[in-house]
Amino acid sequence: MIDFLKKLFGHSGSSSTAKERLRLVLMTDHLELAPDMIDAMKRDLVDVISRYVEVDRDKIDVTFEQQDKALAMLANIPILSVNRANGQPAPSVAVAASAEPAPAAVATAPAAADAPAPIKRKRRRRKKAKSQGVAGVPETAPA
């Protein structure tokens, strides 16, 4: 009975919205605080894409923004020329990756992030480079 009344009068609130926003905003903050990591990621990304097209390394722009419930990474990579005669030349490749931020990353105090090991190159050829990819990382249950 009491529980029923509690349910009736309680928990309609905005604190869960606040919690969710806080989680996302800190995820972004911590990413910004780890420029080493972002640089390393950019480098690896370019290495992969360069296997298919020639890109303008100096004009690459990687940003992070909040999209609905997820944090999205947006990469704008100008393409100078297509290396292999397969597919239409495109002015740029936009790579978007979004991930439900894991709580562990939110809780970690900003620290100098170690540069991740470069991605091992697979020498397998693909017919066509995907111009847009969205990778979702499954959500880890929040604490």
């Binding site: 309680g10 928990h11 309609s12 609130g13 905005s14 604190s15 606040a18 806080l22 989680r23 809780a107």
Partner: peptide, 18 residues
């Protein structure tokens, strides 16, 4: 307000700040 779910609780805040 915390009880009504309208304000972050002590636990909510410190789950993040630790």
């Amino acid at each position: 307000l915390v009880k009504k779910g309208k304000m972050l609780s002590v636990e909510d805040v410190n789950a993040i700040l630790r």
